[in-house]
């Protein structure tokens, strides 16, 4: 099948469409991004540096990294296991499993936080028991982690499943008939084939894990310097009318988003064939 190659816009209609698209992207996407940097440096570099080097900011950065460092590997391992059983075997209830896998994408972040309060909060199912044993889950690190895990759960699996379905099982079956054993098949055949898609999924998962706001905000309890991740730190500062510090912190996350976009785009250009055909997040 032949597809139409893009060409320079010539007709007035084409130019009008192009102009509208550029205007819209500038207004809706670029302007808010530029505004973050503008507001962050509004009073100069010194206040900016002061804001991001302040102890609460540093501890927010550390906590954000820690949460992502725990949540992302968990979801990566899960994503590989889920993609393996879904794409390599036939079993009853697969459709249902896929729907459950997609659920976190359709949940409001607030609901993704709420459910953990219902389980582990003071009046939650396990609240009294946890209290009696002096275990803290919500308003502490474990709560931040599980909320982040729930929100970012499908990213890796969703990236791997279409690709592995597309690649089929021929190579792995060939390896088995040649005598390869369990992990050999995975590490020598499957992993090299999916490594870029895995990288891609992990990248998106990490970006979302570090930037998650709604779910984390509910389970964190907003304890400054203790359970505030970067996005929550922004909220606290903004609500205190400390605009410069809020935007300075926001600029760190905006930078992170831009780095994510660049890496993502590079992966897409370089390894288009080795990434899944249809991507929607």
């Amino acid at each position: 099948m032949k597809v139409k190659a893009p060409e320079a816009p010539k007709s007035p209609a084409a130019i009008a469409l192009l102009a509208f698209a550029l205007f819209w992207i500038a207004l809706v996407i670029v302007l808010p991004l530029v505004n973050v940097l503008f507001e962050a440096f509004r009073t100069g570099v010194a206040p900016y540096l002061a804001a991001i080097l302040e102890p609460d900011a540093i501890s927010a950065i550390k906590l954000t990294l820690l949460v992502a460092a725990i949540a992302v590997p968990l979801n990566a391992v899960f994503g590989i296991a889920a993609a393996w059983c879904i794409t390599r075997f036939e079993f009853r209830g697969k459709g249902l499993l896929l729907s459950v896998l997609d659920l976190p994408f359709t949940l409001s972040p607030v609901i993704s936080g709420l459910v953990w309060i219902l389980l582990f909060g003071a009046h939650g199912w396990f609240g009294a028991w946890l209290d009696a044993h002096n275990i803290r889950i919500v308003f502490a690190l474990p709560g931040l982690v599980i909320a982040t895990v729930l929100v970012t759960l499908p990213f890796v699996a969703r990236e791997l499943i279409p690709l592995m379905l597309d690649q089929g099982t021929d190579e792995e079956i060939a390896a088995v008939t040649l005598g390869a054993r369990g992990w050999d098949v995975f590490f020598r055949i499957t992993l090299p084939n999916i490594k870029w898609a895995l990288t891609y999924g992990v990248l998106l998962c990490t970006a979302r894990a570090m930037g998650e706001f709604g779910a984390v905000s509910i389970v964190s309890g907003h304890i400054r310097g203790l359970t505030n991740t970067l996005p929550l730190h922004i909220e606290v500062l903004y609500n205190e009318y400390n605009t410069v510090a809020a935007f300075a912190t926001a600029s760190i996350l905006a930078g992170l988003a831009i780095v994510t976009l660049i890496l993502k785009t590079l992966l897409e250009w370089r390894f288009a064939d080795e990434l899944a055909a249809h991507r929607r997040h």
Binding site: V36, F213, L261, K264
Partner: peptide
């Protein structure tokens, strides 16, 4: 175009 996917919502919100 993917920026809204990548930009943390709180950043978009304050901006």
């Amino acid at each position: 175009v993917d920026l809204p996917f990548a930009l943390p919502t709180a950043v978009a919100g304050v901006s």
